[in-house]
């Protein structure tokens, strides 16, 4: 092999870069594992199914925001026909007042920073 003094450091740099997640997690990882959002509500059901809420809640909240703030519609008909108020504070946070243990649990894990709290006041928690 020619130019060993350049090829070998080059390969080492490549290896360090592609294994970034491995050594980064070993050195700086939180080691917390998967998030476990806590549900404190007695209610059996959310406004939509669990699977839908798990993946699409941001979409729903965005639609609610647009409907209330831009069109002035306040009520939302759920999949099973019930009417609920489209309100973060009066609907969502009624069942999920524990922002840190519910919202933040997954959001922090996924490094997502939703801008809900730019306008809304985060619920008081003890």
């Amino acid at each position: 092999m020619y130019d060993k003094e350049k090829i070998i450091p080059g390969i080492i740099v490549f290896l360090v870069l592609v294994t970034f997640p491995v050594w980064y997690n070993l050195a700086f990882g939180s080691g917390n594992g998967a998030p476990e959002p806590q549900i404190v509500s007695q209610n059996e059901k959310c406004v939509e199914s669990k699977d839908y809420m798990r993946t699409q809640h941001m979409d729903l909240l965005n639609q609610w925001r647009d409907a209330v703030v831009r069109q002035g519609y306040r009520m939302y008909r759920t999949a099973d026909g019930a009417l609920v108020e489209m309100s973060l504070t009066n609907t969502c946070l009624q069942c999920h007042p524990n922002k840190t243990q519910f919202c933040d649990e997954c959001h922090n894990y996924m490094a997502v920073k939703p801008y809900c709290w730019d306008c809304h006041i985060a619920p008081m928690e003890n």
Partner: peptide
């Protein structure tokens, strides 16, 4: 995509993300 491979996600990834989504169009 490093946000799927690292916990906590390094700050340069967050910075890159916020720059990439600078115009805040839609959700996500």
């Amino acid at each position: 995509h490093l946000r799927f491979f690292t916990d906590p996600t390094p700050s340069f990834v967050l910075w890159l993300e916020s720059l990439d989504g600078f115009f805040q169009i839609g959700v996500p």
